[in-house]
């Protein structure tokens, strides 16, 4: 193999320009040089030919069978990690949230979910909501303001967020408000309200709706149920491990606005 840049020391810059690595000023300086340098002109022509050669190469997606085997292996491994991490924390309160199973398991689930879903990348908002919910279920992460009083929770958001989220308590209907916190979803800070239904936690994420109103609907991911609707210019995502019917009931209470 010969020296990387035989002839003219600018050929690597020619290459960098074709690779989209040069800023405007660098590119302009290079263009000035290249117009008087036959070596760089030749290099550019060659590089373009090589690129054309490779352009037809089909990009193979992971075959379904391979993907399935990888997922199976990861699930197996994830379970092992989860078990291992519950075992290394024997002194902790393992049953803070009975629905979840334990601190270590929660942490491991959150990590695994984040891993599997990573990171926004045009990713599905619903999965991001679930990942955020699971993260929040870890001790100390659930509420920034713990109060069953909507008149305490609502003003807490003032100055912490650039909109005023509606805050309501549905204790009479069996969904008592527990508090609220700031979270981050869809590329912006959002309000999260925390409700309890029996032993289950419901997170309700609220932020100003985008211009396109989206249809409400329910779905389920990784065993968590989701309800989503827009109302009064806000977008709402409710997520919990309560039954789908109960979450729908919760969503209906909200939409009725009573």
């Amino acid at each position: 193999m010969s020296a990387p840049a035989p002839g003219c020391d600018k050929v690597l810059l020619v290459q960098a320009e074709l690779d989209g690595e040069l800023g405007a000023a660098e590119a302009a300086a290079l263009a000035a040089h290249r117009s008087g340098c036959p070596l760089c002109q030749k290099a550019e022509a060659e590089l373009l030919r090589t690129r054309a050669l490779l352009r037809g190469e089909p990009y193979a997606a992971v075959p379904e069978a391979v993907r399935a085997r990888v997922m199976a292996r990861l699930r197996q491994h994830e379970t092992r990690l989860a078990v291992a991490s519950t075992m290394v924390r024997p002194g902790r309160r393992l049953w803070l949230w009975p629905s979840l199973g334990g601190f270590g398991l929660g942490a491991a689930c959150a990590a695994a979910l984040a891993f599997l879903l990573v990171l926004p990348q045009g990713g599905d908002l619903a999965v991001a909501v679930v990942a955020s919910h699971v993260r929040a279920l870890q001790p100390g992460h659930l509420e920034d303001v713990a109060s069953t009083d909507q008149h305490t929770v609502k003003p807490w958001f003032d100055g912490r967020i650039d909109f005023a989220p509606p805050v309501r308590d549905f204790a009479a209907a069996g969904f008592p408000l527990q508090g609220g916190r700031l979270d981050y979803l869809d590329g912006r800070p959002v309000a999260a309200l925390v409700y309890q239904r029996d032993k289950h936690i419901i997170d309700l994420y609220i932020w100003p709706a985008s211009t396109v109103p989206r249809m409400g609907g329910g779905t389920a991911i990784h065993g968590y149920n989701l309800a989503h609707w827009t109302q009064d210019g806000m977008t709402f995502w409710a997520v919990s491990d309560v039954e789908g019917a109960q979450l729908d009931e919760f969503a209906k209470l909200w939409r009725r606005g009573s």
Binding site: M1, S2, P4, A5, V11, L12, Q15, A16, D19, E46, L47, R49, T50, A52, L53, L54
Partner: peptide, 22 residues
């Protein structure tokens, strides 16, 4: 990285020419 890319492309171009590829 830059010099490896350059060498890789040079080798590829030469091999392609030897194979009569356009």
């Amino acid at each position: 990285v830059m010099s490896r890319l350059w060498r890789a492309r040079q080798l590829l171009a030469r091999a392609a020419a030897a194979e009569g590829l356009p």
